[in-house]
Design a protein around this nucleic acid. Structure first.
Lengths: 419, 419
DNA sequence: TTAGTTTGTCTAAGAGACATACATACCGCC
DNA sequence: GGCGGTATGTATGTCTCTTAGACAAACTAA
């Protein structure tokens, strides 16, 4: 276990939205602290913004209906946000046949500050600016060395600087999605497979110090989750899960409108849940982890066993194509792969009942056929119960999803008005 | 699947605490509704009461420090609760060496209303009155017929009436712990094993109509969870899990201070998570459910296979005794049993990282030896990570725990001021 | 006796949502 | 064109509730 000293984060370079929402976060986060009248303002501002995100462009009256308050209240909350060019009024929408004054929809201003999104892999880093409606710009990418953490950090900051140039406004913050294990409390890297030089590196604190911006950081599946929550299929949903397949396996959960994070950001380590007691050995040292039967390495091994062509480069896309061409054994292997993936999803459904799953990673490449097969296996495994209709969906393309996810981390932190 | 029509619950016979806290629950529950100053009062009242629960008897000043507000605020919140005889002041506590005015500790009044707790099993019903400090009185029990739901309901109400006589004050509500599958939205029974007559019965609505009291209802593991949260080992903890073993397997989770309930109360169906793909057939129709390797029926079968005496009556207590007497095979079987139980706990830890587990049911009878063995297996299976120290504890005796749990359901509903 | 400390209460001020009334802007219809 | 109906957005006084600060009460230690 890597020893990680705790450091005070700087708070320089704060943005408008920051200042507005800060108060609401600090004390309201803890269940034991009482609410004060002044917190209410910050909390409600956050909720109105979240409602706007979930509904899309909406009039004051619409927001009032949705949030259960009077139109006057919404006006008071919205006005300063308009004054600060965070929101703008769109062109009035003609009323329905019933008549009435045209509604003036509110939405995030083009002038609003963007978010700097970073995706950190074991051998490369990618970054971009993400606007509040999910548009990417200023994409940048770099290969990472393996020698030492300082050198790696230099490359990362260079990459970020290139992206920052794409925006003439200072960003709201920097969101980092890391493919590896993270300590979300300390915003530090615990362990990245294949890149041991980064283990224990306080990336969050260093980025904060370098750019003077608030940093939000989490591991890859959780970033995909918040990306889908703000910009994708999960928009407006209070409960869903993200499952990422491919070389590894990961998951993340949104429960009752909140991103689930265990202590120090633990939880969601689905890849190493046991699905086969005394099963195949896993690289983690145990036997029968879900990873041993639902990743690409399993698929490649099986493809080799049944003599499919180029088994070492097998993946969902190729296997689906082979099955479509009626290659002997391909359809059967595809179904077994679907079943193996379904096992972990079913276990998660039994445990936490999110009811809605968004797939990311390799399995997405298998298309609707694979997705439907997985869904069918899940439904077969999970006994039906009231309110338990299970749906599977497919996430955005990996590249976009990851960066939007990193941006979503910042949004979640900013709007984390809880309750 | 049983079809369950929805019915409006009556709201007759409301109590003081009810009225006080009602407002805070209704609109604050949903994250999309905004807060109002008047909500703040209800929410804070709930939080102060929760703080008092978690801390034990505490002065106004102590509560103020804990909750981060001024003493004046606590006084304002507390005063009406004292006036209504929900709280009382205890004898003053002498100050420390530093001097100062003696603190007057606050605690729940003996005059405070109790809670009616009911435990419903497939063949019997038990009830009691539970005071706010967890004391049980007026215990009552009855065997249930199997013929039809109305008859069963009559017996249940008779049992409850006997318990109600033990209290001269009207209770805050009726809490029901059901050994079976529950729809918590509709407070209806979905399915009780071995008692199909009750399937689909709207128990909550009927009890409400009969007694004019608010009814809180949930399945057994979740009742144990809230029981431990209010009256047991989980007191004051924001995250922990309850695992119940024995004839069946169940679990429940407290996450970030809130009882986890999926849609319609789903979730925590740990017994039928897969831990052995293509494993032993389970009565649910699938193969390799956790239940197939970690319940008493597995233990009895294995005991028979290795020739232990009276295998059909084997349980943790007897097996532990046999192992202590160095009976051949007993210690080995006990360890395998511990390992099998640990598998499900480890999977839950990997998925949700509650870090603290309270065992209930048969495994408790195995004493510290079995508990330690389970803990050791869990720690072996789960890779260590920051903030991930795993602890196991043993719950109260089954009878007390279940009824306190049922009472805890009412408390949770009343104080459900969410974050 | 005096200074220091902690508890608990009182009062004025401030934040913020709510109810209500009102102006604005559109529809359909006579 | 005028009129009732309907929906949006704004202005005003009221209500709830926390906060800050002052103060009395009760105790310790020198």
């Amino acid at each position: 276990m890597v020893d990680i000293p705790q450091v005070e984060p700087s708070s320089a370079g704060r943005s408008h939205l920051d200042d507005i929402l800060e108060e609401g976060q600090r004390s309201v986060r803890s269940t034991r602290n009482l609410l004060s009248s002044s917190n209410v303002g910050a909390v409600n501002r956050g909720r109105v913004l979240q409602a706007l995100f979930d509904l899309g462009p909406t009039s004051r009256a619409g927001l009032a209906r949705y949030t259960g308050v009077t139109r006057a209240t919404i006006s008071v909350i919205i006005q300063p946000l308009i004054d600060q060019a965070i929101l703008t009024e769109g062109t009035p929408i003609p009323p329905t046949e019933a008549g009435g004054k045209p509604a003036r929809p509110l939405w995030f201003s083009n002038e609003a500050q963007p978010i700097c999104a970073v995706q950190l892999l074991h051998d490369s880093v990618r970054s971009a600016m993400v606007s509040l409606d999910g548009t990417l710009s200023g994409k940048s990418e770099a290969t990472l060395p393996t020698d030492n953490a300082e050198h790696i950090f230099q490359i990362i900051t260079k990459c970020i600087r290139r992206s920052l140039k794409a925006s003439h406004r200072p960003p709201l913050g920097i969101g980092v999605a890391v493919v590896g294990m993270i300590d979300t409390d300390r915003k530090a890297i615990v362990a990245v497979n294949l890149a041991p030089a980064m283990n224990g590196f306080q990336l969050g604190q260093r980025l904060d110090a370098t750019f003077g911006l608030p940093v939000s950081m989490d591991h890859h599946p959780r970033a995909l989750l918040v990306g889908d929550r703000w910009f994708g299929q999960g928009r407006g949903r209070p409960n869903f899960a993200v499952i990422q397949t491919g070389e590894g396996l990961g998951g993340a959960l949104l429960l009752n409108g909140e991103v689930f994070r265990g202590p120090a950001g633990a939880g969601g380590e689905l890849g190493h849940t046991l699905v086969q007691v005394d099963g195949r050995p896993c690289y983690c040292g145990l036997r029968g982890c879900w990873e041993t039967i639902a990743t690409l390495s399993w698929l490649r091994e099986q493809a080799g066993l049944i003599g499919l062509p180029e088994p070492h480069e097998m993946n969902s896309r190729r296997l689906t194509a082979l099955a479509a061409k009626a290659t002997p054994g391909a359809a059967d292997l595809l179904d077994r792969y679907a079943r193996n993936i379904a096992v972990g999803i079913a276990n998660l459904q039994q445990t936490m009942a999110p009811n809605f799953f968004i797939l990311h990673g390799d399995a997405v490449e298998g298309g609707k056929g694979l997705t439907d097969a997985i869904a069918a296996h899940v439904r077969r495994i999970v006994p039906l119960r009231p309110g338990g209709h299970i749906e599977l969906a497919v996430g955005d393309h990996q590249d976009v999803a990851a960066l939007r996810g990193a941006a979503g981390l910042v949004l979640s932190d900013l709007l984390q008005f809880v309750l």
